[in-house]
Design a protein around this nucleic acid. Structure first.
Lengths: 214, 214, 214, 214
DNA sequence: CCTTAAGCGAGACGGTACGTCGGGTCTTCGT
DNA sequence: ACGAAGACCCGACGTACCGTCTCGCTTAAGG
């Protein structure tokens, strides 16, 4: 049992909120520990008592509220599940906070293996497992054949990487609004069939699954 | 005509080589201007005379030797062209220098718009245009139908982003060696074509092609 | 009451000692902040936390141990008091540290008014007041008549300036060892008699010479 | 005889004038070679072809027009000669240019022996020799006794140093306007009488007292 | 109740990188 | 060989940041 004064939970909250507030309109590199502790009205030591470094703190702040609820992505069909997932991923990464935080955070991943590990388990593996579930359900429904050479790791890298490219690498893209549709169509076309719904039908098209088993 | 003493080309070379030497086994953040100028035997001012900031310098150093030769990717078929391109992109990004430089560089893109512009035109646009050429040739050969909803921007984001994800986001990936094949198959399957290239033979899944025309 | 961690006195000491050590055999201009902080085993910030600029720091280091103890200069007679003072001033200015520091420091006085103010109160005013005391005592003893047109400011400028000239301006002087005696005699001879020439009578005063041959 | 293109005298003039223009309202340290060459419309090399360093250049610029004309200080009497000399010295040192240049210049003297040598011969020795002449004339006129213990070196250090102190060390002096008179009186009072006060009795130089009782 | 361990804000600590500026030298071209 | 222009190396400056440590104070839990 712990002796001494217990940590004040409000300090955790204030710190994480301060990080998010700053990241809302400041780049990762310009968010310094001093500014965070100043905005939160906390001491520097209170930060390092909780997180071992700046990337850990920012990671914790950015992670907040990004829990994957597996049930949201079980909507009865491969296309709908995937569409919901793409929507979710884009929504997560297209936040002002995420846009400011992620590139800097990923840059630090290369240096600090501890954060990398956390990042992997918290984001990467969770998403990949979710995709594996979606694909497995689709397979059991007959939407996907079993021998499919494109598995969860590939779909995951495809999905996440394409969103990343659209948001962080190809920044002069004329239209960023339809990122969800473009990524969704690209990922789906990988798994099933030529997507001959046409650009007009951007919806999840649950009625399309019958064609998939072909 | 330029007045005054001209820049010494050897200094350019020494500086850029110094950057690459340091980036070969040091992270972007740990490559300092002082170390670069020290290793190059140049003064700091010689750096700032040529590039306005550290990301500009690193960008120039990393860009070196990455010119796209369009002829290398005109091999007579969509699959072969794409395979060559994927191989090229992976080769570029999987260099020790690139692995150390790119995450930090992309993080700085968010702050310095000048570097971002250069990055866009030098890397992003060039690649996208190349992909557009490849697709256009395929279309004229009849390998792709004209109404294909997946165009060059999508293929580009797919290809580049997926490589990025494999290399920089999903770093606990068990196998990184077959990145080329996995990305190639994923991109190709998007375009609804049978995979009949040699290397893909290991996983060509001939059983899938019949469904494609579907 | 002060909040936060208090300054460590040992850092003050180490920094000031480092400055004096460097000034013992290096010119003011060659004593850099980096060398000081390096020799003191302190961070640069520790310096700028205490002094706002290099001249402020050097001034603080040079000032150390130069407090005027008025009692040392009350020895019962004008000549002895003055001799002690000249000895003191020469001893202060003829130190290796002072010889290296003072010219550079005085050069910076012209630029930084804050250091100038400090320099004035710490050195100039203190000395002048001490001289005023010495003269006042001499007057009350009858060693000086009251109408004496040469007062403390003049004696001070005479004394200090002459020492300065001997040490820093006339550096090819054959003998520097008897500076004390020469300055002492010069200053004392100034005070010996009422000056009844007056500025108006710039003439040679032939009537006074008969006393000289004694 | 020199081969090649001869130096353009106008460049010398422009450079020296540029230095004086800058020194008219800028401190020595803030007058950089770049600013000088820029203002003069000359190249850096043109400076270093003529003078070996910044202090040499500044010295040359400040020296300009300060030639001592010995006849100006032969006015028929010790007091008048000295008064003229004090006026001259104060006029020289109280120029805006001199006020900005001299402290910095003297600071550099400690480092560069070449400039020091020049400074000595050009300023110090010339003045001292002039004072020696003045005193010698006074002696031959009977204004000074021959055994006078205060000679030209002492008078010189007194005069120059006192002016220096009034102008550069005691900068909070309430009145600077009467510097000439104060220095003149101080110097003259040194010379006009034998040292025969009682107080010197307690002084450290017992050997000198025999003359004192007169 | 009172000791004790650990929390708290504030801020000093050593170290390091940044970008600017200055000095003195060297190299271009044209005169 | 001069002229202007400007690149060259070196190194100082002052600011900012990181992660640690040290103050005095506060807050509980355990004796």
């Amino acid at each position: 049992m712990p002796r001494g004064r217990p940590r004040e939970a409000v300090v955790d909250v204030r710190l994480l909120e301060a990080v998010r507030t700053l990241l809302a309109d400041t780049d990762y590199a310009d968010v310094s520990i001093a500014r965070i502790s100043g905005l939160a009205g906390a001491g520097r030591a209170a930060i390092y008592r909780r997180w071992s470094s700046k990337p850990e703190l920012v990671f914790a702040a950015v992670v907040h509220g990004t829990e994957l609820d597996a049930r949201r992505f079980d909507q009865g069909g491969l296309a709908t599940d995937l569409h919901a997932l793409v929507e979710h991923v884009v929504a997560l990464l297209n936040t002002p906070v995420a846009r400011n935080a992620l590139p800097g955070l990923v840059a630090e991943l290369q240096t600090s293996p501890e954060v990398r590990r956390r990042f992997q388990t918290r984001f990467i593996r969770a998403e990949r497992d979710l995709i594996a579930d979606i694909l497995s359900r689709a397979r059991s429904r007959g939407e996907l054949q079993t021998g499919q050479p494109i598995g969860a790791p590939e779909v995951h890298a495809h999905l996440l990487g394409m969103v990343w490219a659209e948001l962080f690498l190809v920044t002069d893209s004329p239209v960023a609004g339809d990122v969800v549709d473009r990524v969704f169509r690209s990922v789906l076309s990988t798994l099933s069939l030529p997507d001959h719904r046409g650009p007009a039908r951007q919806g999840p098209q649950p009625g399309r699954q019958p064609e998939d088993p072909c």
